[in-house]
Amino acid sequence: MRTWYRPLVVFSALMAVTAVASVVGLLVDDRELLGAPIWLKPLKFSLSFVAFGLSWAWLLSLPERRPRFLGGTAWVIIAASLLEMVIIIGQVVRGKQSHFNTGTALDSMLFSIMGATVAILLLATMVLSVYIAARRLAPAAELLAIRFGMGISLLGMAVGILMTTASSGVEGITGAHSVGVLDGGPGMPLTGWSTTGGDLRAPHFIGMHALQLLPLLALAIRGRGERVSKRVVWAASLGYLGLVVLTTWQALRGQPLFSPDWVTGTALGVLVVGVALGVLSAPRQPEVSAPPVEAERIPS
């Protein structure tokens, strides 16, 4: 980790401290907002930023020479993320909803700023992704996992845009996490994802964390040979992409994540079978390099 991009490591450490402070908030502050403990949102966001920051701190360590604009872009991401967390925590202290809240002039201004930070985060992350993806900075299977991880992560971030267009059904609230039901209804433990309607937070979460899961998969199968590893990464990455698309489609149709209809269930089954076939079709034995051939001795 000594070579990881230090500003992002420090940012991740700060987010880890924020997560601990949020846990303390959960223990000493019994207020709730939309049916969930009020400090749960900053806890989830800070943990997500820890994973995001460490992932990019590692990715930016891969180029032997890091152009100056990459560092500048990383600092833009850090600044935008910190501003978003300040607003989220500030609204928690006020006992107000941070996302989609346009009930007062102040709340509307803060939500507009958050919207701008999200756009900046998406664009800056896209810049970093294009630079890293265009270069051969890792072995073939790991590079493939990195490219897919960055791309699917961007798709997961973009799913958040759909939340701003969802109908809240509440005056002064523009946008919603849930589809078909009001935010704040029955939800899953910890995540709070709706158990009675669709919830766009599920594909948003799944997509964003491809950035961690797919490279970790590639590292886990390192040593199985390039052909085997690439086949497994291809199958897993395409399956992961399909899962993000499927869960987004499911949420937009108002279905809870774990209560799909037969159409969604069938599509999931086809996806699982496709991934399994892709993995099983990989060679069972890693390829072995042929020993060097000694030159034939010709008698003098």
Rank of each mutant, 00 (worst) to 15 (best):
T102C: 00
T165L: 12
A290Q: 11
W56E: 11
G184T: 10
A51M: 11
V293G: 03
G223F: 06
T196F: 02
F52K: 06
M126S: 15
L182N: 06
M109R: 10
E296L: 13
V50A: 01
E64Q: 15
I206C: 02
A158Y: 00
F49W: 12
A16F: 13
Q250V: 02
D261G: 14
A202W: 07
E294T: 13
G180V: 00
A74Q: 12
A79K: 08
V9P: 04
I206K: 04
G169V: 03
I132R: 12
L143C: 02
F11V: 11
P299C: 00
V50P: 08
L70N: 10
A16R: 09
L106V: 12
A202Y: 11
V130H: 11
V228E: 14
W193A: 04
R284Q: 03
G25I: 11
V270R: 01
T248F: 05
P139K: 08
L216H: 10
V228H: 15
P283D: 07
V228P: 06
L82K: 01
S46I: 01
L182A: 13
S12Q: 07
V23R: 03
A218D: 03
L155C: 02
P186N: 11
T117P: 05
Y131H: 15
L271G: 04
V93T: 10
V76A: 11
I132M: 11
R201T: 00
V9N: 04
A138N: 08
Q285I: 06
W193V: 07
A16D: 04
P42F: 09
L82T: 13
M1Y: 04
A105R: 12
A202V: 14
G71Q: 03
E32T: 15
T266V: 07
L243K: 06
H99I: 04
T73E: 01
E287T: 08
W4F: 12
S55M: 03
E226P: 02
A19V: 06
G156D: 03
V273S: 10
L27S: 12
A36Q: 14
A51I: 10
Q212M: 13
F69G: 01
D199I: 02
T165D: 01
V245F: 15
G72W: 14
